[in-house]
Design a protein around this nucleic acid. Structure first.
Lengths: 219, 219
DNA sequence: CGGTACGTTGATATCTCTCAAAGCAGGTGG
DNA sequence: CCACCTGCTTTGAGAGATATCAACGTACCG
């Protein structure tokens, strides 16, 4: 799974011979921005966040990494990003340089990674549009809809339950907002009857998806 | 040059056999969002912008493409981005699907493209940080400093001249601001003595780079 | 039964956008 | 050569949105 999806059998075994399993508890950091960029990894299970930060400490989540995804900055000597587990996660970790050398001989891996990187770039661009041109309500509503497609569980009554894997602070850092505006937008959605909050806000029930769509993409 | 940088000789000739030269005048569009995604290209000379837009027509420039860069969304059936020439440009255009097939047999091309895509992704992430967490002044000052590294020409008196390749509108779309705030920030920088404007704002002279740096990265 | 971390709510400040008008440069045709 | 037109830029005033600061509420955990 993951990088392995369509890769060649030999290439895979070459890779797996340099990989090491590693468990990361929620909150633990895999990689610090500024450190030597010594490793990369494939996510077996869990969710990680990738954050960039300004000189004065403001943070922006520039990517979320789910099971099957690859994480790491290949070909960079020092890392500019911090990678942190949002929930308990299992990784397959590789020494970066060795990974690059193996990949150079394993074109199926290279091809796979190119595909993924292109997909990530598309994601990143979609998010630039959000960060540059969308209002708070659109960002929050859009975020919920994205989550639905990734992590949703349908309940018996037809509404959709999301176990939000991130805190309000993470949502804010992801969306380029503050905690307070995220919270306010969520209660707004609650008042509109589009969602219901539970478990102190960590669990969101989407009761009216149709109501959410136009808020995420107004005309 | 371009994709060709370190590519294998055979791979290159395979590529060039499917490529076609094409000139694009400033303002002309190479690719429209929503159209069938039939082509990709290598920029020989010039500068292009890549824009994404919301359902209701707001635009965000998600990338600038310079000489030597590759442009196009591989492996996507329909394009979600519009690509437009900012200045008269020369391209080497390929049919997308054929390009993909040739690339599959040409690992040196694949490797090259992976490198570039990874670099674009890093760019994109840096820009997410800007769009999500930086103020107008930081964005504008930072933009100027970025341009310096790309297109600057040193003048005899030690100040730096930029021929800004984009209109205020483009700068605004790039930075996630409006034309007016970009303009205001520029005059602010002018008042601070960091820059001088000429040619109706199209040419910017950086008279005090040291003054610009802390504005782009305060603290 | 606190305590602590997280979430919500409120009041206010700040920033950027919006709308409107005026200034400037370049191009065209008289 | 000048006048005018057009598109871009600048400037201004005011509205609107989000951030900030502060307090309060709530869940989870020892």
């Amino acid at each position: 799974m993951g990088l392995c999806g369509a890769a060649d059998r030999d290439d895979l075994s070459a890779l797996s011979s340099i990989g090491r399993r590693r468990a990361l508890a929620a909150g633990q950091v895999l990689t610090w921005a500024g450190d030597d960029n010594v490793l990369c990894a494939n996510v077996v299970s869990g969710i990680l966040k990738v954050t960039a930060s300004t000189a004065n400490g403001r943070e922006q989540i520039v990517g979320l990494v789910f099971a099957g995804d690859f994480v790491g900055q290949l070909f960079e000597e020092t890392s500019s990003l911090t990678v942190t587990a949002l929930v308990d996660s299992d990784l397959c970790v590789y020494p970066r340089e060795r990974f690059e050398r193996v990949m150079a001989e394993a074109s199926s891996i290279e091809r796979m990674l190119l595909r993924r990187t292109l997909a990530s770039l598309n994601d990143a661009r979609e998010r630039m549009l959000t960060l540059g041109k969308r209002g708070a309500q659109e960002r929050v509503a859009g975020f919920l809809l994205d989550l639905v497609d990734r992590t949703a569980v349908r309940t018996v009554d037809g509404s959709i339950s999301i176990d939000v894997p991130v805190s309000r602070g993470d949502m804010a850092d992801f969306l380029g907002l503050t905690i307070e505006t995220v919270s306010r937008q969520l209660t707004r959605l609650k008042v509109l009857g589009a969602i219901t909050l539970a478990r102190g806000g960590r669990s969101i029930l989407i009761t009216d998806r149709a109501a959410l769509e136009p808020l995420a993409n107004p005309e």
